[in-house]
Simulated scan of single mutants.
Amino acid sequence: MTDAPYTGGCLCGALRYEARGQPLYMGHCYCADCRKASGSGFIPFMAFAAADLTFSAPTRTFTCVSARGSDAVRNSCPTCASLVFGGPVGQTDSHTIYAGSLDDPSLFRPTMAIFAKGRPDWAVIPEGLEVFEGLPD
């Protein structure tokens, strides 16, 4: 792990973030919502404490119902529409950073795969990840 901050942002550079400290966890989410939001077989994600994150600009938000039944908020750049992070700013203890938005993608080291049940066969889970059919306890 690194002591340097994790930095990243959107495709056009209008929305940037800096995360200090270490991620709470890292993994791949194979749920149907993440697949549709990303246009891929999964979303690689990292979670950070909200207090450890700063964002450079307002976001465009999209809210839907999560697997737990609460609101799931996805934040994207209002200019280029890149999906950057999850969670309502100022209203949650942690945020999910989408690992594809990292400036240095080598910092992403997934340890888990969530919502593996129902994933398409072509969305391969890498060896060595702890696999959960839904959300971990």
Rank of each mutant, 00 (worst) to 15 (best):
T2S: 10
A4E: 15
A4M: 14
P5C: 12
P5Y: 01
T7N: 10
T7V: 09
L11D: 11
L11I: 11
L11T: 13
G13C: 02
A14I: 01
A14N: 13
L15F: 03
Y17W: 12
Y17C: 08
E18V: 15
E18D: 07
R20P: 10
R20D: 06
G21D: 02
G21Q: 09
G21T: 04
M26N: 10
H28P: 10
Y30D: 10
C34N: 06
R35V: 12
R35M: 08
A37S: 14
A37W: 10
S40T: 15
S40F: 07
P44T: 08
M46T: 14
A47C: 05
A47D: 15
F48W: 03
A49M: 04
A51N: 07
A51L: 09
A51H: 10
A57Q: 13
R60A: 14
F62H: 15
V65Q: 08
R68F: 11
G69F: 08
G69D: 05
S70L: 15
S70P: 10
S70R: 12
D71Q: 11
S76G: 13
C77A: 05
T79Q: 11
T79V: 13
C80L: 00
S82E: 05
G86P: 02
G87S: 05
P88S: 15
G90E: 05
T92G: 04
D93A: 12
H95Q: 01
G100H: 03
L102G: 09
D103Q: 14
P105I: 03
S106D: 15
L107P: 00
P110K: 00
T111G: 12
F115A: 06
A116E: 01
A116L: 01
G118F: 06
P120F: 03
D121Q: 15
W122D: 02
P126Y: 01
F132I: 08
F132H: 15
E133F: 09
E133V: 12
G134D: 08
G134Q: 12
L135A: 12
